[in-house]
């Protein structure tokens, strides 16, 4: 709970410093995904409350932390003041993004321009990071292909017949999915984009699982489906780059996609954001299912 609030507070902190895109993402991740995973972990790990053993370690740690902190404070002493417009950070590279990206890329959201065009390769890396994490979680938690024996959690969900919640969620989930699509395709104009959309999309599915049980959710999205599509998202992103290569331009140069440079940029950004969205949504669902399956296993062991 506290962790989730921490996420929300840091999101509003970003908001107050004009970083709307970052705030949006942090709200989705810091207040949504990571506390959810944390709770799922605690559910299967249990709450241990044993006191720290060796009193020596904190002292050494404290010393280390203080040294690092002092080093950082000294480092900040001759830094440009907070919010100063003439700081070097705002001088060299950034002005071009602000002044020319509306013409060069043709979309108003500069963060999206930089993310999906100037520094699109970083974003490809980011998608691959998520993909790697998905592979990691899959290899750590999923031993069984078959998921038939997930029934205990479904039983628990079925026991407390949350009629009202179910009806409310039936009303809620479609708008959430549509909102996800909106965020996906509206990233050019307002805050948002593939990553946030993917998380929202995954949230809708997760909500569905929580109210109706894993069995029904599996009928909609099963493991193979999620697995295949998480790879396809990355490949879709990469294919844009390969198309540029095949046309003799540099990797991820969108200008080969259409005659008009801004149209080309539009198409490129649309496709790669779609790739991001697919991979992120699939990996999130994958991670969630893996965690759920593990909770199931723990409950089974407890029953024995």
């Amino acid at each position: 709970m506290l962790f989730s609030i921490y996420g929300l507070i840091s999101a509003s902190f970003f908001m107050s410093m004009d970083a709307v895109d970052v705030a949006f993402t942090e709200a989705a991740v810091g207040a949504g995904v990571s506390p959810l995973l944390m709770l799922a972990t605690l559910a299967s790990v249990g709450r241990y409350q044993k006191k720290p053993t060796d009193p020596e370690i904190p002292k050494v740690a404290l010393l280390l932390v203080i040294i690092t902190g002092i080093l950082l404070i000294i480092g900040t002493l001759d830094m440009p003041a907070f919010g100063a417009a003439d700081a070097p950070a705002h001088q060299h590279v950034a002005p071009r993004y602000i002044k020319e990206s509306p013409e060069e890329i043709g979309i108003p959201n500069m963060v999206t321009s930089v993310l999906a065009s100037y520094r699109a390769y970083d974003t490809l890396g980011e998608v691959v990071v998520i993909f790697t994490a998905g592979i990691g979680v899959l290899s750590l938690l999923n031993f069984r292909r078959r998921r038939r024996n997930i029934h205990l959690i479904d039983d628990i969900i079925a026991i407390d017949e949350h009629k009202i919640l179910r009806i409310v969620s039936k009303i809620l989930i479609p708008p959430i999915l549509i909102f996800g699509l909106y965020v996906q395709f509206h990233g050019d104009f307002g805050p948002g984009g593939g990553f946030q959309a993917g998380v929202i999309f995954a949230a809708a599915i997760i909500l569905y699982v929580l109210f109706f049980g894993v069995k029904y959710a599996h009928q909609v999205v099963n493991q193979t489906f999620v697995r295949v599509f998480s790879a396809i998202g990355v490949l879709l992103y990469g294919s844009v780059g390969v198309v540029s290569l095949l046309n003799g331009k540099n990797f991820l140069d969108y200008h080969v996609l259409a005659e008009n440079p801004t149209t080309a940029q539009h198409i490129g950004i649309l496709v790669i954001e779609l790739g991001v969205g697919i991979t992120v949504a699939c990996v999130m669902i994958l991670i969630f299912f893996s965690f759920i399956e593990n909770i199931e296993k723990v409950i089974q062991e407890l029953r024995k």
């Binding site: 970083a19 991740v29 972990t41 993004y97 990071v129 994490a133 990691g136 965690f291």
Partner: peptide
């Protein structure tokens, strides 16, 4: 405001959640 740090941090947040997910499954 300078858009570049925002872009970098968007990426870093994603990296962070990826690390967290992997770490938590290791803990399990």
């Amino acid at each position: 405001s300078n858009p570049l740090p925002h872009v970098l941090i968007l990426t870093a947040i994603v990296v962070g959640i990826a690390t967290t997910a992997l770490a938590l499954s290791l803990v399990i």
